[in-house]
């Protein structure tokens, strides 16, 4: 999505330059007050002291970050050794999101390529077909996946009926289910940018490669892939970033053992057991990771753009 927003940018004329400030004022006001200020406030909250029934006490404290990174023993008075609980959850989130991204690429790339090689007039219809699920409620889609993967669900029925397995497989509440869920949630994000890149690809390059004795797969690896790399990277980011902070797939498909960062954060704000500063700190860490990824991506884009000119 980040790539899409950056694309919606270049100017086309200056007919309304005198009033542009007025035209932008509502946007500035709304998004500053309802997004920018809250994010900054969250940063502040992450350095406050927790109140026991949710909320905060306005006292500066490192406690939230300390809790995230430091193990200070049972009574909290030992020197800091690394606390692995939350880092493990974070690492699991990255791992799961990464696997989901690879899975999306494996299915999404051929799909995008296939669509881009259809006749021009049917391509929009294919793209439309890929986009529809994105607009269907993510919650409902995740619930549907849970229904599919259940122990006595349709997928297991088919597996047992066809004799591929003797007994139903435990699929729900596993890491695998979370990967499938994330993959299923964000697959369209992989297909669309890759499709856009392949559609722009000049297929006479493939013909030239074939003419110069390259095999099909060599052509794909040496000619097509380098040309469509920006689309592939964009697709990977668009799948990886939302997967990292996902809440629904791990919550509904993973169960308690397969906690991801999103569930960890959510837990801090629900009910009385919550720890708001800790939740804010975990959110800040997640946000930082995402912003680092996006910044590296934007830098690379700018450099690639500079080279072309």
């Amino acid at each position: 999505m980040a790539g899409g927003a950056a694309g919606g940018g270049s100017t086309q004329g200056d007919t309304y330059k005198e009033v542009r400030t007025w035209l932008l004022l509502p946007t500035w006001a709304t998004l500053s007050i309802l997004v920018l200020v809250p994010v900054l406030l969250m940063l502040v909250y992450s350095f406050l002291t927790k109140e026991f029934r949710g909320g905060v006490i306005w006292e500066f404290s490192f406690a939230a970050y300390d809790q995230f990174f430091c193990d200070r023993g049972l009574f909290g008075d030992e020197p800091c050794s690394i606390e692995w609980t939350y880092i493990t959850i974070f690492w699991r989130s990255i791992w799961q999101a990464g696997l989901a991204t690879i899975l999306s690429l494996f299915i999404g790339f051929p799909t995008a390529y296939f669509i881009a090689t259809r006749p021009a007039h049917v391509r929009p219809l294919w793209v439309f077909l890929i986009t529809i699920p994105y607009w269907v409620n993510l919650l409902i889609r995740t619930v549907s996946m849970r229904f599919m993967l259940r122990e006595e669900g349709p997928l297991n029925n088919v597996l047992v009926w066809s004799g591929l397995t003797d007994a139903p497989l435990q699929m729900i509440n596993t890491n695998f289910a979370v990967q499938i869920g994330l993959f299923y949630s964000y697959l369209p994000f992989m297909v669309l940018p890759v499709y856009a890149a392949v559609e722009r690809y000049n297929f006479s390059l493939s013909e030239a490669a074939a003419d110069l004795y390259a095999s099909k797969w060599t052509t794909l690896r040496r000619i097509v892939l380098p040309a469509v790399k920006p689309g592939v990277i964009a697709g990977c980011i668009l799948v990886f970033v939302p997967s990292l902070g996902a809440f629904l797939a791990p919550d509904l498909l993973g169960g308690a053992k397969n906690f991801m960062i999103g569930s960890l954060i959510e837990e801090q704000f629900k009910g009385n057991a919550g720890n708001w500063p800790f939740g804010a700190a975990a959110s800040m860490i997640l946000l930082s990771v995402v912003l680092i990824i996006l910044t590296i991506y934007a830098r690379q884009q700018a450099r690639a753009g500079g080279k072309e000119r």
Binding site: A5, T27, S32, A280
Partner: peptide
């Protein structure tokens, strides 16, 4: 600013808005 809600993970926006 306009793309901010697209870049910030939804759960982070949720937390920030709640706070």
């Amino acid at each position: 600013l306009i793309s901010l809600p697209l870049m910030v993970p939804e759960i982070v926006t949720a937390v920030a808005t709640l706070i």
